[in-house]
């Protein structure tokens, strides 16, 4: 547990001091969302209709943007080998790295999402639900993405391959994330969607570190 906390703080500190991952992901998130009204047109009713979907798709893409660095930096400076060989179970290390990734990349997105939702003229009723859905769903984005990052670590043009591998697996999270907000706006209960999102996150929390650890071990051989 101590090692877990230490690894999370190390990764968060690295991300903050390099000042890259978190702020860049947020910047990307904002720009992608601003591009949508420019592309679709400024009509408020249209924007309100697509706002939940746009926010979620932008969140998926911003998460993906920083995922290829998840193990790559450690791979390049050799600390990944030490992590694989250490006495701490590799699954736990993966979970720590995912936690750090979520804290530095996904959490800032959740914070700015309500403001952007207002820009997109989302029904104000839907905004708290959007935040809940993002909080419940984004950990799964980091966890599923870790599997892809583990599979593609050390590969040339790994980033492109990563998106090809990971994005189809993101489909359920996207559907239920948008579904929760739409259900709330249309006066239906968002609870079923939120529960399924939580279930997906819990399931990937168990299964993804295991698969990622296997992938990392295969890459080290």
């Amino acid at each position: 547990m101590k090692a877990f906390v230490r690894l999370v703080t190390r990764d968060v500190r690295l991300a903050l001091r390099q000042g890259s991952a978190g702020t860049m992901a947020v910047g990307f998130f904002v720009i992608v969302i601003v591009l949508f009204p420019l592309g679709v047109g400024p009509e408020l009713s249209v924007l309100a209709r697509i706002s939940a979907g746009v926010l979620w798709v932008a969140a998926l893409l911003s998460c993906l943007l920083s995922l290829d660095r998840l193990f790559q930096a450690d791979f390049e400076d050799g600390s990944l080998d030490l992590l694989v060989l250490s006495a701490v179970p590799l699954e736990l290390i993966v979970l720590a790295k995912c936690t750090a990734h979520w804290l530095t990349t996904a959490l800032p997105l959740v914070v700015v999402a309500p403001v952007l939702a207002l820009l997109l003229n989302m029904d104000t009723q839907g905004i708290p639900t959007l935040v809940y859905a993002l909080l419940l769903g984004t950990p799964a984005l980091s966890l599923v993405g870790a599997v892809g990052a583990g599979l593609t670590v050390g590969i040339r043009r790994g980033g492109v391959l990563l998106s090809l591998v990971v994005l189809p697996l993101y489909v359920p999270i996207l559907i239920f994330g948008v579904g929760a907000v739409d259900a709330r706006i249309h006066g239906l209960g968002p609870e079923p969607h939120l529960m399924i999102l939580a279930a997906i996150t819990l399931f990937t929390g168990v299964a993804a570190p295991w698969a990622t650890a296997a992938a990392l071990r295969a890459s080290g051989e």
Partner: peptide
């Protein structure tokens, strides 16, 4: 898309031993 990602993974990893393992993990995750 899952098929395409699976085939792309096989193609990009040069080492056949690692490629086989990575592809197998991806197939099972899928």
């Amino acid at each position: 898309f899952l098929y395409i990602g699976y085939m792309a993974l096989w193609q990009t990893i040069d080492d056949p031993v690692r490629g086989a393992k990575a592809a197998a993990i991806l197939a099972l995750v899928g």
